[in-house]
Design a protein around this nucleic acid. Structure first.
Lengths: 141, 141
DNA sequence: TAATTTAATTCGTAGTGCGAACTGTTGTCA
DNA sequence: TGACAACAGTTCGCACTACGAATTAAATTA
Protein backbone atom coordinates (compact mmCIF):
# COMPACT_ATOMS: atom_id res chain seq x y z
CA UNK A 1 0.00 0.00 0.00
CA UNK A 2 2.72 2.44 0.98
CA UNK A 3 4.68 1.69 -2.17
CA UNK A 4 1.65 2.24 -4.30
CA UNK A 5 1.03 5.58 -2.69
CA UNK A 6 4.56 6.72 -3.32
CA UNK A 7 4.04 5.92 -6.96
CA UNK A 8 0.83 7.91 -6.94
CA UNK A 9 2.65 11.06 -5.93
CA UNK A 10 5.42 10.45 -8.44
CA UNK A 11 2.86 9.98 -11.18
CA UNK A 12 1.23 13.31 -10.36
CA UNK A 13 4.56 15.09 -10.31
CA UNK A 14 5.52 13.61 -13.66
CA UNK A 15 2.15 14.51 -15.12
CA UNK A 16 2.61 18.07 -13.93
CA UNK A 17 6.00 18.24 -15.63
CA UNK A 18 4.51 16.91 -18.83
CA UNK A 19 1.74 19.49 -18.86
CA UNK A 20 4.22 22.22 -18.05
CA UNK A 21 6.45 21.17 -20.92
CA UNK A 22 3.57 21.26 -23.37
CA UNK A 23 2.63 24.69 -22.12
CA UNK A 24 6.20 25.92 -22.36
CA UNK A 25 6.66 24.64 -25.91
CA UNK A 26 3.45 26.19 -27.17
CA UNK A 27 4.27 29.49 -25.48
CA UNK A 28 7.69 29.52 -26.99
CA UNK A 29 6.27 28.94 -30.47
CA UNK A 30 4.41 32.20 -29.97
CA UNK A 31 7.43 34.09 -28.67
CA UNK A 32 6.13 34.07 -25.11
CA UNK A 33 7.29 32.68 -21.81
CA UNK A 34 4.91 30.28 -20.04
CA UNK A 35 4.13 32.93 -17.43
CA UNK A 36 3.25 35.47 -20.06
CA UNK A 37 1.02 33.03 -21.92
CA UNK A 38 -0.65 32.01 -18.69
CA UNK A 39 -1.44 35.61 -17.93
CA UNK A 40 -2.86 36.22 -21.38
CA UNK A 41 -5.12 33.19 -21.03
CA UNK A 42 -6.30 34.37 -17.64
CA UNK A 43 -7.15 37.73 -19.17
CA UNK A 44 -9.12 36.30 -22.05
CA UNK A 45 -12.55 36.50 -20.38
CA UNK A 46 -12.06 40.22 -19.67
CA UNK A 47 -10.07 42.96 -17.91
CA UNK A 48 -8.79 42.20 -14.42
CA UNK A 49 -7.32 44.36 -11.67
CA UNK A 50 -3.67 43.90 -10.73
CA UNK A 51 -4.52 42.74 -7.24
CA UNK A 52 -6.96 40.12 -8.47
CA UNK A 53 -4.60 38.94 -11.19
CA UNK A 54 -1.90 38.63 -8.58
CA UNK A 55 -4.14 36.36 -6.53
CA UNK A 56 -5.20 34.32 -9.55
CA UNK A 57 -1.61 33.69 -10.66
CA UNK A 58 -0.27 33.23 -7.12
CA UNK A 59 2.26 36.01 -7.57
CA UNK A 60 3.27 38.91 -5.35
CA UNK A 61 2.08 42.25 -6.67
CA UNK A 62 5.67 43.34 -7.19
CA UNK A 63 6.32 40.33 -9.42
CA UNK A 64 3.21 41.00 -11.43
CA UNK A 65 4.17 44.60 -12.18
CA UNK A 66 7.21 43.45 -14.14
CA UNK A 67 5.34 40.67 -15.90
CA UNK A 68 2.64 43.08 -17.08
CA UNK A 69 5.34 45.61 -18.07
CA UNK A 70 7.03 43.15 -20.38
CA UNK A 71 3.84 41.94 -22.00
CA UNK A 72 2.62 45.49 -22.37
CA UNK A 73 5.90 46.38 -24.07
CA UNK A 74 5.11 43.65 -26.62
CA UNK A 75 1.75 45.31 -27.23
CA UNK A 76 -0.35 42.36 -26.08
CA UNK A 77 -1.89 43.98 -23.05
CA UNK A 78 -2.70 47.46 -21.79
CA UNK A 79 -3.32 49.12 -18.45
CA UNK A 80 -6.48 51.15 -18.18
CA UNK A 81 -6.98 53.42 -15.19
CA UNK A 82 -9.96 52.26 -13.19
CA UNK A 83 -12.78 54.80 -13.34
CA UNK A 84 -14.10 54.20 -9.84
CA UNK A 85 -10.74 53.96 -8.02
CA UNK A 86 -7.92 56.10 -9.28
CA UNK A 87 -5.30 54.00 -7.50
CA UNK A 88 -6.22 50.86 -9.39
CA UNK A 89 -5.90 49.82 -12.99
CA UNK A 90 -7.48 47.16 -15.13
CA UNK A 91 -5.25 45.00 -17.28
CA UNK A 92 -6.86 44.08 -20.58
CA UNK A 93 -5.85 42.27 -23.74
CA UNK A 94 -5.20 44.22 -26.93
CA UNK A 95 -6.40 42.77 -30.22
CA UNK A 96 -3.01 41.12 -30.74
CA UNK A 97 -3.08 39.85 -27.18
CA UNK A 98 -6.48 38.28 -27.65
CA UNK A 99 -5.22 36.50 -30.76
CA UNK A 100 -2.16 35.18 -28.97
CA UNK A 101 -4.20 34.10 -25.95
CA UNK A 102 -6.71 32.28 -28.14
CA UNK A 103 -4.01 30.56 -30.15
CA UNK A 104 -2.05 29.42 -27.10
CA UNK A 105 -5.12 28.13 -25.36
CA UNK A 106 -6.26 26.25 -28.43
CA UNK A 107 -2.91 24.61 -29.08
CA UNK A 108 -2.34 23.62 -25.49
CA UNK A 109 -5.83 22.17 -25.33
CA UNK A 110 -5.34 20.26 -28.55
CA UNK A 111 -2.07 18.73 -27.43
CA UNK A 112 -3.33 17.76 -24.00
CA UNK A 113 -6.53 16.31 -25.39
CA UNK A 114 -4.50 14.31 -27.85
CA UNK A 115 -2.81 12.65 -24.89
CA UNK A 116 -6.02 11.94 -23.04
CA UNK A 117 -7.91 10.84 -26.13
CA UNK A 118 -5.71 7.81 -26.48
CA UNK A 119 -7.35 6.36 -23.39
CA UNK A 120 -10.48 4.23 -23.68
CA UNK A 121 -13.58 6.40 -23.30
CA UNK A 122 -14.61 5.06 -19.91
CA UNK A 123 -11.22 5.48 -18.34
CA UNK A 124 -11.00 8.94 -19.81
CA UNK A 125 -14.21 10.04 -18.14
CA UNK A 126 -13.17 8.64 -14.78
CA UNK A 127 -9.80 10.32 -15.03
CA UNK A 128 -11.40 13.66 -15.72
CA UNK A 129 -13.92 13.35 -12.92
CA UNK A 130 -11.19 12.38 -10.49
CA UNK A 131 -9.07 15.35 -11.45
CA UNK A 132 -12.05 17.67 -11.19
CA UNK A 133 -12.82 16.42 -7.73
CA UNK A 134 -9.25 16.91 -6.54
CA UNK A 135 -9.31 20.45 -7.88
CA UNK A 136 -12.65 21.15 -6.26
CA UNK A 137 -11.41 20.01 -2.87
CA UNK A 138 -8.10 21.82 -3.13
CA UNK A 139 -9.62 24.86 -4.82
CA UNK A 140 -9.83 26.97 -1.67
CA UNK A 141 -6.07 27.21 -1.18
CA UNK B 1 -18.22 17.10 -26.70
CA UNK B 2 -15.96 19.92 -27.75
CA UNK B 3 -16.79 21.87 -24.61
CA UNK B 4 -16.06 18.86 -22.49
CA UNK B 5 -12.68 18.44 -24.13
CA UNK B 6 -11.77 22.06 -23.53
CA UNK B 7 -12.52 21.49 -19.88
CA UNK B 8 -10.34 18.40 -19.89
CA UNK B 9 -7.32 20.41 -20.92
CA UNK B 10 -8.09 23.14 -18.40
CA UNK B 11 -8.41 20.56 -15.66
CA UNK B 12 -4.98 19.14 -16.48
CA UNK B 13 -3.42 22.59 -16.54
CA UNK B 14 -4.95 23.44 -13.18
CA UNK B 15 -3.85 20.15 -11.72
CA UNK B 16 -0.33 20.82 -12.92
CA UNK B 17 -0.37 24.22 -11.22
CA UNK B 18 -1.60 22.66 -8.02
CA UNK B 19 1.15 20.05 -8.00
CA UNK B 20 3.71 22.68 -8.82
CA UNK B 21 2.54 24.85 -5.96
CA UNK B 22 2.81 21.99 -3.49
CA UNK B 23 6.29 21.24 -4.75
CA UNK B 24 7.31 24.89 -4.53
CA UNK B 25 6.01 25.27 -0.98
CA UNK B 26 7.76 22.16 0.29
CA UNK B 27 11.00 23.17 -1.42
CA UNK B 28 10.83 26.61 0.08
CA UNK B 29 10.35 25.17 3.57
CA UNK B 30 13.72 23.51 3.06
CA UNK B 31 15.42 26.62 1.73
CA UNK B 32 15.46 25.31 -1.82
CA UNK B 33 14.00 26.35 -5.13
CA UNK B 34 11.73 23.83 -6.88
CA UNK B 35 14.42 23.20 -9.49
CA UNK B 36 17.03 22.49 -6.86
CA UNK B 37 14.71 20.13 -4.98
CA UNK B 38 13.79 18.37 -8.19
CA UNK B 39 17.44 17.80 -8.97
CA UNK B 40 18.15 16.44 -5.50
CA UNK B 41 15.24 14.00 -5.83
CA UNK B 42 16.49 12.87 -9.23
CA UNK B 43 19.91 12.23 -7.68
CA UNK B 44 18.60 10.18 -4.78
CA UNK B 45 19.00 6.76 -6.44
CA UNK B 46 22.68 7.46 -7.15
CA UNK B 47 25.29 9.60 -8.95
CA UNK B 48 24.45 10.81 -12.44
CA UNK B 49 26.49 12.39 -15.20
CA UNK B 50 25.82 16.00 -16.15
CA UNK B 51 24.69 15.06 -19.65
CA UNK B 52 22.23 12.49 -18.40
CA UNK B 53 20.93 14.79 -15.69
CA UNK B 54 20.46 17.45 -18.31
CA UNK B 55 18.30 15.06 -20.34
CA UNK B 56 16.34 13.93 -17.30
CA UNK B 57 15.52 17.47 -16.21
CA UNK B 58 14.97 18.77 -19.76
CA UNK B 59 17.61 21.45 -19.33
CA UNK B 60 20.42 22.62 -21.59
CA UNK B 61 23.84 21.66 -20.31
CA UNK B 62 24.70 25.30 -19.78
CA UNK B 63 21.67 25.78 -17.53
CA UNK B 64 22.53 22.72 -15.52
CA UNK B 65 26.06 23.92 -14.79
CA UNK B 66 24.73 26.88 -12.83
CA UNK B 67 22.08 24.85 -11.05
CA UNK B 68 24.64 22.32 -9.87
CA UNK B 69 27.01 25.16 -8.92
CA UNK B 70 24.46 26.74 -6.60
CA UNK B 71 23.44 23.48 -4.96
CA UNK B 72 27.07 22.48 -4.59
CA UNK B 73 27.76 25.82 -2.90
CA UNK B 74 25.08 24.90 -0.35
CA UNK B 75 26.94 21.66 0.28
CA UNK B 76 24.13 19.36 -0.86
CA UNK B 77 25.84 17.89 -3.87
CA UNK B 78 29.35 17.28 -5.14
CA UNK B 79 31.04 16.73 -8.48
CA UNK B 80 33.25 13.70 -8.74
CA UNK B 81 35.56 13.29 -11.72
CA UNK B 82 34.59 10.22 -13.73
CA UNK B 83 37.32 7.58 -13.56
CA UNK B 84 36.80 6.22 -17.07
CA UNK B 85 36.33 9.53 -18.90
CA UNK B 86 38.28 12.54 -17.71
CA UNK B 87 35.95 14.94 -19.50
CA UNK B 88 32.91 13.84 -17.54
CA UNK B 89 31.87 14.15 -13.94
CA UNK B 90 29.32 12.43 -11.75
CA UNK B 91 27.04 14.53 -9.62
CA UNK B 92 26.23 12.92 -6.30
CA UNK B 93 24.37 13.83 -3.13
CA UNK B 94 26.28 14.64 0.03
CA UNK B 95 24.91 13.37 3.34
CA UNK B 96 23.07 16.66 3.83
CA UNK B 97 21.80 16.48 0.28
CA UNK B 98 20.42 12.99 0.79
CA UNK B 99 18.58 14.17 3.89
CA UNK B 100 17.08 17.14 2.06
CA UNK B 101 16.11 15.00 -0.93
CA UNK B 102 14.46 12.42 1.27
CA UNK B 103 12.57 15.00 3.29
CA UNK B 104 11.31 16.87 0.23
CA UNK B 105 10.21 13.72 -1.51
CA UNK B 106 8.41 12.49 1.58
CA UNK B 107 6.57 15.73 2.22
CA UNK B 108 5.54 16.24 -1.37
CA UNK B 109 4.31 12.67 -1.51
CA UNK B 110 2.36 13.04 1.70
CA UNK B 111 0.64 16.20 0.58
CA UNK B 112 -0.25 14.89 -2.86
CA UNK B 113 -1.48 11.60 -1.46
CA UNK B 114 -3.63 13.50 1.00
CA UNK B 115 -5.39 15.08 -1.95
CA UNK B 116 -5.89 11.82 -3.80
CA UNK B 117 -6.86 9.87 -0.71
CA UNK B 118 -10.03 11.89 -0.37
CA UNK B 119 -11.37 10.15 -3.45
CA UNK B 120 -13.30 6.89 -3.15
CA UNK B 121 -10.94 3.93 -3.51
CA UNK B 122 -12.19 2.81 -6.89
CA UNK B 123 -11.98 6.19 -8.48
CA UNK B 124 -8.53 6.65 -7.01
CA UNK B 125 -7.24 3.51 -8.67
CA UNK B 126 -8.69 4.46 -12.04
CA UNK B 127 -7.25 7.92 -11.79
CA UNK B 128 -3.82 6.54 -11.12
CA UNK B 129 -3.94 4.00 -13.91
CA UNK B 130 -5.10 6.68 -16.34
CA UNK B 131 -2.29 8.99 -15.38
CA UNK B 132 0.23 6.17 -15.65
CA UNK B 133 -0.97 5.32 -19.12
CA UNK B 134 -0.72 8.91 -20.30
CA UNK B 135 2.82 9.08 -18.96
CA UNK B 136 3.75 5.80 -20.58
CA UNK B 137 2.51 6.95 -23.98
CA UNK B 138 4.09 10.38 -23.72
CA UNK B 139 7.22 9.07 -22.03
CA UNK B 140 9.33 8.93 -25.18
CA UNK B 141 9.38 12.70 -25.69
C1' DT C 1 -8.91 66.69 9.29
C1' DA C 2 -5.53 63.16 10.72
C1' DA C 3 -4.42 58.38 10.68
C1' DT C 4 -4.87 54.11 8.48
C1' DT C 5 -5.51 51.07 4.80
C1' DT C 6 -5.23 49.91 0.04
C1' DA C 7 -3.42 49.68 -5.11
C1' DA C 8 0.26 49.70 -7.52
C1' DT C 9 5.28 50.71 -8.44
C1' DT C 10 10.34 50.90 -7.60
C1' DC C 11 14.56 48.92 -6.17
C1' DG C 12 17.91 45.46 -4.99
C1' DT C 13 18.90 40.64 -4.91
C1' DA C 14 18.99 35.73 -6.10
C1' DG C 15 17.80 32.38 -9.27
C1' DT C 16 16.42 30.35 -13.99
C1' DG C 17 17.26 29.17 -18.75
C1' DC C 18 18.93 29.84 -23.33
C1' DG C 19 22.45 29.88 -27.17
C1' DA C 20 27.09 30.79 -28.80
C1' DA C 21 31.75 30.39 -28.01
C1' DC C 22 35.37 27.93 -25.62
C1' DT C 23 38.59 24.18 -23.25
C1' DG C 24 39.91 19.72 -22.80
C1' DT C 25 39.41 14.75 -23.82
C1' DT C 26 38.20 10.87 -26.51
C1' DG C 27 37.60 8.50 -30.56
C1' DT C 28 38.25 7.78 -35.63
C1' DC C 29 40.38 6.94 -39.92
C1' DA C 30 43.74 7.86 -43.62
C1' DT D 1 50.74 8.26 -36.03
C1' DG D 2 48.74 12.60 -36.61
C1' DA D 3 44.97 15.44 -38.06
C1' DC D 4 40.21 16.03 -37.07
C1' DA D 5 35.57 15.32 -35.79
C1' DA D 6 32.67 14.40 -31.78
C1' DC D 7 31.79 14.86 -27.09
C1' DA D 8 31.56 16.57 -21.82
C1' DG D 9 31.41 20.50 -19.36
C1' DT D 10 32.09 25.39 -18.60
C1' DT D 11 31.84 30.43 -19.40
C1' DC D 12 29.56 34.48 -20.86
C1' DG D 13 25.92 37.72 -21.93
C1' DC D 14 21.17 38.24 -22.06
C1' DA D 15 16.23 38.32 -20.86
C1' DC D 16 13.09 36.82 -17.66
C1' DT D 17 11.07 35.30 -12.98
C1' DA D 18 10.08 36.11 -8.16
C1' DC D 19 10.59 37.95 -3.73
C1' DG D 20 10.43 41.45 0.11
C1' DA D 21 11.07 46.12 1.79
C1' DA D 22 10.32 50.75 0.91
C1' DT D 23 7.60 54.27 -1.61
C1' DT D 24 3.74 57.09 -3.74
C1' DA D 25 -0.80 58.27 -4.23
C1' DA D 26 -5.70 57.59 -3.49
C1' DA D 27 -9.48 56.02 -0.60
C1' DT D 28 -11.37 55.02 3.98
C1' DT D 29 -12.04 55.55 8.76
C1' DA D 30 -11.83 57.61 13.11
Amino acid sequence: MADQEIETADALVQLAHLVQRVFAEVSRDHGLTPQQAQMLCRLHPGPVRMAELSRALHLEKSSLTGLVDRVEARGLVSRRRDAGDRRACQVELTADGALAAGACHMEVSARLEALVDELPTGRRATLLSGVSEILRRAGGD
